[in-house]
Design a protein around this nucleic acid. Structure first.
Lengths: 219, 219
DNA sequence: GTCTATAAACGGATAGAC
DNA sequence: GTCTATCCGTTTATAGAC
């Protein structure tokens, strides 16, 4: 992405710098909020600054370009997403159906709990960073690799289920795309600030989506 | 949207004007292609002109603003979408499960056959037309109404299935969102120009997605 | 570190030639 | 009808004050 300036004054190395850390994260949070509300291309750096109640000088101190904000949000969203479904995906004690259910459930919760990060992360990065040329190829590769790893978790569990004859025999990748669609489409309709919204409501939604997905692949 | 200039010269009313008609449609097609590739906000009018191999003067002759192109694409996409699932939705001779299967099948085919129009039509219109102020409220209302009608087709069939005890009793709207997600998410992974792509392959994909969706709601 | 001011480029839209 | 030239607001990004 680009390395955050650390202000490495001599003799200052061991000093705590909580403010700087906080600011970089606050900026990423603000960018995620702004991007999720208006879309990446339609959001200006001034819009992000407005969310923070500051001016863009602050943002450019921590992030060199707008594209870096986008990449930072993607990387964070995917890191969290892998953390969300990884533990369930790697449990050896679960039958394929229950493992898939747990993965979709955690995936859905993650989407709701981090909607500002996950919304922007759904965009096609190639599309949005086309103007950046080849300058961010390394990070884009990293993002695509994380996406592939995330999808592989699903491919693996569905493959297990088909092998065990508990999931029906069908185009493996297509089944996974259908499952992913049922979950990822939440970004189009879930609104975190609705009056009905609450932790228990989110659990209910996650459980229903998981039930739908599991039944969709069951033999 | 805005009315296409008709060049209503006196005594010229009955004359065929195939060229003008073709141009307005060609421009909408080009805009759909460009928007579907780069996103609405990131696409300039010059980009659209490039697709046509002309300059933007031609585009502005037929469409007053960029937002009008966006709205025109939405209206066309939704008109086709309603035509795609309407006949199946209104068939009285089908059981809920088979009706839902037919609807999803046609919906999926439509998404693939008109992917350049359907991709842009997935965007949140409020988000993308926010800058247009109140000037396009009538058309935005029309679009939202068509979307509601489209979703209502699904709500109705799922309600029928639940009443007939062939679909499981669950949050009706959530079931519909899950079904819509499985289908609509296709825009994220389906590529019309892939080597494997063909009419029979599209039929196969549509059938698989429909199977997944029907099983997801079955009791 | 954060702000203000500004450079430089881009993009939507219009005017007018042809 | 389509093109060229251009206006003008917006936006990314930088320079330099504090």
């Amino acid at each position: 992405m680009w390395i955050m300036r650390q202000g490495a004054a001599p003799g200052n190395d061991r000093e705590l710098r909580p403010k700087q850390q906080a600011s970089a994260r606050e900026i990423l949070d603000a960018a995620a909020t702004a991007f999720s509300e208006r879309g990446y291309a339609a959001t200006s750096i001034d819009d992000v600054a407005d969310v923070l109640g500051c001016t863009k000088g602050r943002i450019y101190y921590y992030y060199r370009t707008k594209g870096d904000l986008f990449i930072g949000i993607h990387l964070q969203a995917l890191e969290w997403a892998l953390e969300a479904i990884g533990p369930a995906a790697e449990r050896a004690d679960l039958e394929p159906a229950e493992k898939l259910r747990a993965m979709v459930h955690q995936h859905a919760l993650h989407l709701m709990n981090r909607s500002s990060y996950m919304g922007p992360a759904q965009y096609q990065i190639e599309m949005n960073l086309a103007s950046e040329g080849r300058s961010k190829e390394a990070q884009m590769t990293k993002i695509l690799e994380m996406r592939r790893q995330f999808e592989d978790y699903y491919v693996t569990v569905v493959k297990e289920g088909v092998a065990a004859k508990v999931f029906r025999e069908a185009d493996l990748n297509l089944l996974v795309k259908a499952v992913l669609g049922a979950v990822n489409w939440m970004h189009a309709w879930f609104r975190p600030d609705e009056p009905k919204d609450s932790p228990t409501e989110r659990e209910r939604i996650a459980a229903e989506i998981a039930e739908f997905a599991v039944r969709g692949v069951l033999a």
